[in-house]
Design a protein around this nucleic acid. Structure first.
Length: 234
DNA sequence: TCATTAAATTTCT
DNA sequence: AGAAATTTAATGA
């Protein structure tokens, strides 16, 4: 499967309404009106209200936790078409998290009764949600393995390929990550430090696996996957 | 190999 | 200009 195909299937997978036709979608407009949210808005906090499922139509949202010494640990960044939040019956993420918009976002909020009614009316939506949960579980398994076994270089490569699936836009041989990411952000996702991320990125650039310029990041998917398929250092 | 500390330099607002 | 982000270097676990 080439990158474009993979990217498309990824997007199709995360849109829980992908299977519905126009008429069905139209009937959902009233259920989940679209709201605009300014950059930097905290949408979820631990022990805060849990209004339901958030459908992120456009924009980027950071899910993070605060470690006991107060540092931000970014769990993941979500892009267009993703779903997060939780109801009594369906949790798409854990309870002790913060969710904060990184851009101006367009979102819908579906409250629990509406979610359940829609699932009963359109069982395919329920199946989609299960697919989303399944693929996130698989991603998490990959991620925990990487965090447990790999050195920083490989952890960064894993993260970048993962982000590439959701935020990569083709640019010649490269994929540009359409995402405002600082080295500190990357460090907080791979469990390392800002300085170490800086130096691993520069050696990755030297080796032609990535390109960096002005807070923009490109990855060379072919070489990156080759590097990841090589034997891990023990 | 990589966290930590410190300090200089570049880039953003 | 001032803040934020990046880079480089030295040290020790």
């Amino acid at each position: 499967m080439d990158i474009n195909e993979e990217q498309l299937s990824y997007l199709a997978k995360v849109n829980i309404f992908a299977d519905l036709d126009k008429a069905d979608l139209a009937s959902l407009q009233n259920v989940s009106p679209i709201v605009t949210v300014a950059a930097g808005t905290v949408l979820l906090r631990p022990d805060g209200p849990r209004p339901g499922l958030f459908l992120l139509k456009r924009g980027r949202v950071r899910l993070y936790r605060l470690s006991n010494d107060g540092k931000i640990v970014t769990l993941t960044i979500l892009g267009d078409g993703t779903v997060f939040g939780s109801t009594e019956s369906i949790a798409l993420n854990g309870r002790n998290i913060h969710a904060e918009s990184m851009d101006n976002c367009l979102i819908c909020i579906m409250r629990q009764p509406d979610v359940e009614r829609v699932i009963r009316q359109y069982p395919k939506v329920g199946l989609r949600i299960m697919q989303i949960l399944s693929s996130r579980l698989a991603d998490l398994e990959d991620l925990t393995e990487s965090l447990a076994n790999d050195d920083v270089r490989r952890r960064v490569l894993h993260l970048l390929t993962h982000l590439g699936k959701q935020f990569g836009v083709p640019d010649g041989n490269f994929l540009r990550l359409d995402l405002p990411l600082t080295h500190a952000d990357i460090a907080s996702m791979v469990g390392s430090t800002r300085e170490t991320v800086t130096s691993t990125l520069s050696t990755l650039a030297r080796d032609g696996l990535v390109r960096t310029n002005r807070r923009q990041l490109w990855i060379e998917p072919e070489r990156v996957s080759m590097a990841l398929n090589a034997l891990a250092p023990v």
